[in-house]
Design a binder for these strands. Structure first.
Length: 401
RNA sequence: CGGGCUGUAGUAUACCGGUAGUACACGUGCUUUGGGAGCAUGUAGACUGGGUUCGAUUCCCAGCAGCCCGACCA
């Protein structure tokens, strides 16, 4: 009963399984996609000196009372155990990461520092919807940076803008994703979002193509436009989905926990912070929404669950044997290949499934391909395939050293 | 949380106040094999609780769940 494209294709293709509204399991195919996205994000986080950690999902109530968000955050899950003790199910981790830092950081010499994690988050959305785009439990990368000066923060923040652009480029939606001026929500007055154009988007943004920046409708007014130097007439309205967000937190969360350091002169100062989020599960859904066609998903090579979808057509003995041989050789050469060796399936069924799954390359072994002394290779985005030799196939797909 | 719609097999659905039919999927056998194959055969189903009734899957009420719109929202 799902209507949204990402939910329909991902569920039908067996990438995910819905447990309840806004809560999904990742099945083998979907988990491989998530892992690929995760690796790209991890790689990019490490380029700015991010250190990966893993924090808990159960948070002490006191920490959330300290920042006032126990009462003010409407989408906070509060759970209690049999003794009546209440804890928060984490929607974000300022309340945990700040006290951690307080324990280990005290001198200006310790800065700057940035930590991140990739972990499930919980938000009591009043209405979960659109498949992977708005869940109640979802996978997210959250990074927190700590600084001794606004200048230092801004250097890092600007680096993060570039890092985020790289990430969206690497997962295949760079051309559709815009740095967007937006409201800061519960974090700060303003923030920067990364918005990807798709008809399924929940946000409306106004894009200035020339500078490749946009303004979210929620802060779209004359004052904001002027401060950003944007001309109203040049802006184009689009539906979009928020795939990332970066915030200038200043001392909003360091202050309540008295996260401070001493400078060269022995004077105490409050630490400045930034935070940087990307929803991995939403990103996966967004890629499907943005790139799929009417037959199914089209994965970019960088995050496809497999590089190659190998089909054997017909139950002829020679075909079955040849296909298995090809499969073994591909595996030996380190190629990620999904082998459709299902017996008794018609060609059309296998083709249709291949289109639905959206693996970038499709290789067919059949009586026809054997007669032509090769393997038929076709891209998901192409109509017609061509016959190639195994060596040609290997050299095309072999992972670059 | 307000509004709308909907809950029947793994999925999609049909009929019905007298205990459910079809398609796909799945199992088995045979045939078939380049764009969602065929025959045979088998397995499998009324969200929960109350009410009305001789009898409820069907009608009524409540709850729960899902989708959509809105409000809300890194």
């Amino acid at each position: 009963d799902e209507v949204s494209k990402n939910a329909e294709f991902l569920i039908r293709g067996g990438f995910i399984h819905k447990e309840m509204a806004g809560v999904y399991s990742y099945l083998p195919l979907g988990f491989r996609v998530v892992k690929k996205i995760e690796n790209i994000i991890r790689d990019e986080m490490n380029t700015v000196g991010g250190q990966e950690i893993l924090m808990p999902s159960f948070h002490p109530k006191e920490n959330w009372e300290k920042t006032g968000r126990w009462d003010s955050m409407t989408d906070l899950y509060k759970v209690s155990d049999s003794s009546g003790r209440e804890v928060a199910l984490a929607p974000t981790h300022e309340e945990i990461v700040v006290p951690i830092l307080k324990n280990y950081v005290s001198s200006y010499k310790d800065f700057p520092i940035a930590v991140y994690q990739i972990q499930n988050k919980f938000r009591m959305e009043l209405r979960a919807k659109s498949g992977m785009l708005r869940g109640r439990e979802f996978l997210m990368k959250d990074m927190y940076s700590f600084h001794t000066s606004q200048e230092d923060f801004e250097i890092f923040y600007n680096k993060m803008k570039e890092v985020y652009k790289n990430i969206f480029k690497r997962v295949g939606i760079g051309h559709l994703t815009y740095l967007t001026f937006a409201s800061g929500g519960t974090f700060s007055k303003y923030s920067h979002e990364f918005q990807t154009i798709t008809g399924a988007g929940e946000d409306t943004i106004y894009i200035d193509e020339e500078s490749a920046v946009a303004v979210n409708k929620e802060v779209y007014n004359d004052e904001v436009l002027e401060s950003l130097g944007l001309k109203k007439e040049k802006l184009v309205e689009n539906k979009s989905i928020e795939v990332g967000n970066i915030f200038d937190l200043k001392t909003k969360y360091s202050e309540p926990f008295d996260l401070s350091y001493v400078d060269e002169k022995g004077e105490k100062h409050i630490v400045l912070m930034g935070c940087y989020g990307i929803g991995l599960s939403r990103l996966m859904g967004t890629v499907v929404e943005a790139l799929a066609d009417d037959k199914g998903i089209i994965w970019p090579e960088s995050i496809a669950p497999f590089q190659l979808h190998l089909l054997s057509l017909g139950d002829d003995e020679n075909v079955t044997k040849e296909a298995s041989d090809v499969y073994e050789k591909l595996l030996k050469n380190g190629i990620e290949v999904l082998f459709d060796d299902r017996a008794g399936m018609s060609a059309g069924e296998k083709f249709a499934d291949a289109d639905l799954l959206g693996i970038p390359h499709r290789a067919v072994v059949s009586l026809r391909s054997i007669k032509e002394n090769g393997i038929e290779l076709k891209k998901r985005t192409e109509e017609k395939g061509k016959i190639v030799t195994l060596d040609e196939l290997l050299s095309l797909l072999k992972p670059k050293a």
